[in-house]
Structures are given as structure tokens and as C-alpha cells.
Computed example of a mutant assay.
Amino acid sequence: MNVYEGAHVLGMTILVILITLLQWILMKQNEKKEKAASVSILTIGWALAFIYIVFPESISIREIVTNSLRPVIKVLGLI
């Protein structure tokens, strides 16, 4: 990982932490499922962004979704 990738990852991490803290403060204490969902979505987004920063030549999300849904689309006769 070079310096620019490290700076992008650090900036992205700081933003995700700030978003998580702000959402955590705004949610009520009894909203445990909402808090878990929020943290899960942010973690998945952070991991995907990290992969695309470190490995920019990797397969895109659009290609992953297209390849995984292609059999379903064929069965439904949409292609």
C-alpha cells in the first residue's frame, strides 16, 4: 500500500467512525437492532471501499451482481 492509498483509507475510516458516532448519538438506547444494522452496513461499505482502494483492478460490484443473478434472469426469460 502506498502513501496515497493509506491516506484514502485513513480518511475513509475517519468518516465512517464519525458517521457511526453521530448515528449512535441520535438513536435511542432501546434501538439495538437499528444500531446493529447501521454498524453492519457501514462495515460492509468500509470493507468494499477498502478493497477497491487497495485493489483497483479487481472485479466491480456491478459485475458481481450481474454474474450472480444471470441464472435467475435466464430462468425468468428476461434475456
Rank of each mutant, 00 (worst) to 15 (best):
M1E: 05
M1D: 02
N2A: 00
V3E: 13
V3L: 12
V3G: 01
V3N: 14
Y4E: 14
Y4M: 09
Y4H: 03
Y4T: 10
E5R: 03
G6C: 07
G6R: 06
A7T: 14
A7S: 12
A7G: 06
A7N: 08
H8R: 14
H8A: 13
H8N: 10
V9I: 15
L10S: 12
G11V: 10
G11D: 09
G11K: 06
G11P: 08
G11R: 05
M12Y: 00
M12H: 00
T13G: 09
I14D: 01
I14E: 04
V16P: 00
V16E: 01
V16R: 00
V16S: 04
I17Q: 07
L18H: 02
L18F: 09
L18K: 05
L18V: 11
I19E: 11
T20K: 02
T20E: 08
T20W: 03
L21Q: 09
L21G: 05
L21W: 06
Q23F: 13
Q23V: 11
W24I: 05
I25L: 11
I25S: 02
I25F: 12
I25M: 09
K28C: 11
K28S: 10
Q29V: 13
Q29P: 03
N30C: 01
E31D: 15
E31N: 12
E31Y: 14
K32Y: 08
K32F: 10
K32V: 12
E34M: 10
E34L: 14
E34W: 06
E34I: 15
K35Y: 03
K35G: 00
A36T: 04
A37C: 03
A37Y: 08
S38T: 14
V39D: 03
S40K: 06
S40G: 15
I41L: 14
I41P: 02
T43P: 02
T43F: 13
I44H: 03
I44P: 00
W46F: 12
W46Y: 14
W46Q: 12
A47D: 02
A47W: 04
A47M: 12
A47P: 04
A49D: 03
A49K: 09
A49C: 13
F50D: 05
F50K: 04
F50M: 09
I51R: 11
I51S: 03
Y52E: 06
I53K: 01
I53W: 01
I53D: 01
I53S: 00
V54T: 12
V54E: 10
V54L: 13
F55N: 08
F55L: 13
F55C: 06
P56I: 02
P56E: 10
P56G: 06
E57N: 15
E57T: 14
E57M: 11
E57Q: 15
S58F: 12
S58E: 13
S58Y: 13
I59G: 03
S60P: 01
S60L: 05
S60G: 11
I61T: 02
I61Q: 07
R62W: 04
R62F: 10
E63N: 10
I64Q: 01
I64A: 04
V65A: 07
V65Y: 07
V65E: 01
T66P: 02
N67M: 10
S68A: 11
R70S: 15
R70G: 09
P71S: 02
P71K: 05
P71E: 02
P71M: 03
V72D: 00
I73F: 10
I73E: 07
I73P: 00
I73Y: 04
V75N: 11
V75D: 12
V75E: 14
L76D: 06
L76P: 02
L76I: 14
G77H: 05
I79V: 13
I79P: 00
I79Q: 13
